[in-house]
């Protein structure tokens, strides 16, 4: 079971045991991680599941697809190189301990 670490804007760390094949967004919602509202449930419609992948984990996820790229243009928080929509980040056992940061504005 891969572990996902969510770092909240105040520095609090929330660790969640995720089922392989599920998304970083879904695990946040299932476990009440604040700041990832995911209004659309992962349909690439709302850009409310924006996270920054920890620089140490950069490159561990496949790159952004075009439609994710497009939705990132409309997030509330600043878009950085590490920005991702967490509904598009699927975890598996090779991604154990993956760390993402929840943006301030979304929290």
């Amino acid at each position: 079971m891969p572990r996902i670490v969510y770092v909240l804007p105040d520095g609090t760390r929330r660790e969640v045991d995720a089922a392989a094949g599920t998304s970083v967004m879904k695990n946040a919602v299932l476990n009440d991680v604040p700041g990832i509202t995911a209004e659309c449930g992962g349909s690439l419609m709302c850009a409310t599941c924006h996270v920054y992948v920890d620089p140490a984990d950069a490159g561990r996820f496949p790159p952004r697809a075009d439609d994710e790229e497009e939705m990132l243009e409309v997030t509330e928080a600043e878009v950085r190189e590490t920005s991702r929509l967490s509904c598009q980040l699927t975890v598996d056992d090779t991604l154990d301990g993956i760390t993402v940061h929840v943006p301030e504005e979304d929290a």
Binding site: G21, T22, K26, L30, N31, D32, C40, G41, S43
Partner: peptide, 27 residues
Amino acid sequence: YERPPLSKDVLLGKASMDSVRLRAAGW
């Protein structure tokens, strides 16, 4: 469970009902 996937990924068999729960089972 979430309803929107019922006419999309769940209908196509790309997602299971267990993957579209609104809350974790223990919540």
